[in-house]
């Protein structure tokens, strides 16, 4: 694991600025839950096909930021925002963007694994089923490819039609990842995907992210500094709803520009 982190650092060290074009862009973005403001004027460019880690103490707004990218927060009564959030070429709030279509482009993996009470097979193709796809061959291919993507295929290929609830915690989380990538989304959002996993399962999910970033833009929330260092190319540090620092991960961990970032990373608070 340590090796991987070092490698990442070496690769990224020479260039300090994001070399990839911004794929997700927050512009002067403020967000409120009713009267309580959760995000204050965020300006953030998340690069394409890279892993971006969001770190910061609990309650600083990481999940809120993440959940706005696929507009999951729309489900909550009384939310409100100003500023803009652009995904690819369009604002996610553009009247021409349908929430359902948006969510098909943005896969999401939750902190607590949430497989549906269905078979492994049905879990993986859930998004396709919802889109009305019935072509058997396509479904079969998707299941295999997604499960391979999630490094789960070898473990479950003989029990695809058994309940997903019979899998171990780590397998369930990887199944949720397979489910999230089954629809070939452009972006993969992960909110503390490893917080309930043991180290071995965590290692597998981390390896997975390395593979997945070839095709997907990944945003991951984590409380684990080592994990952020190991898996991410860029890191954003939040504090009290504000973006304190956004830089390549190597810079954040070796040479942070903000005192607060350094304090947080070295464990002096939070």
């Amino acid at each position: 694991m340590q090796q991987t982190a070092t490698k990442t650092l070496e690769v990224l060290a020479p260039s300090e600025a994001p070399e990839n074009p911004a794929y997700i862009r927050f512009l002067r973005y403020h967000f409120w839950y009713g009267a309580a403001q959760a995000l204050h004027g965020i300006d953030l460019d998340i690069p394409e096909k890279r892993v971006t880690a969001l770190i910061g103490p609990s309650g600083c707004g990481k999940s809120t930021l993440l959940r706005n990218i696929n507009r999951m927060n729309d489900l909550i009564d009384g939310v409100r925002h100003t500023g803009d959030l652009i995904l690819g070429a369009h604002s996610v709030y553009d009247p021409s963007v349908e929430v359902i279509g948006l969510r098909k482009r943005v896969g999401m993996v939750f902190q607590k694994s949430n497989p549906f009470p269905k078979s492994i097979y049905e879990n993986v193709i859930f998004a396709l089923r919802m889109a009305g796809r019935t072509d058997r061959r396509l479904l079969d291919e998707t299941v295999e490819k997604s499960l391979r993507d999630a490094a789960l295929w070898d473990e479950v290929k003989d029990r695809l039609h058994e309940s997903a609830l019979g899998l171990s915690g780590g397998q369930q989380q990887r199944l949720c990842i397979a489910r999230a990538v089954a629809n070939r989304p452009e972006v993969l959002l992960m909110d503390e995907p490893c917080s309930a996993l043991d180290p071995i399962a965590t290692g597998k999910v981390e390896e997975l992210m390395h593979e997945l970033k070839k095709n997907y833009t990944i945003v991951i929330v984590t409380h684990n500094m080592q994990q952020a260092a190991r898996v991410s190319d860029f890191t954003a540090f939040f504090y009290l709803g504000r973006l304190v620092e956004f830089n390549p991960t190597a810079t954040i961990f070796l040479n942070p520009s903000q005192k607060r970032t350094e304090d947080y990373i070295s464990g002096r608070f939070g």
Partner: peptide, 11 residues
């Protein structure tokens, strides 16, 4: 969690 999971899949 299960509901959000389904919604996040574009249901």
């Amino acid at each position: 969690g299960v509901r959000e999971g389904a919604l996040a899949c574009g249901a």
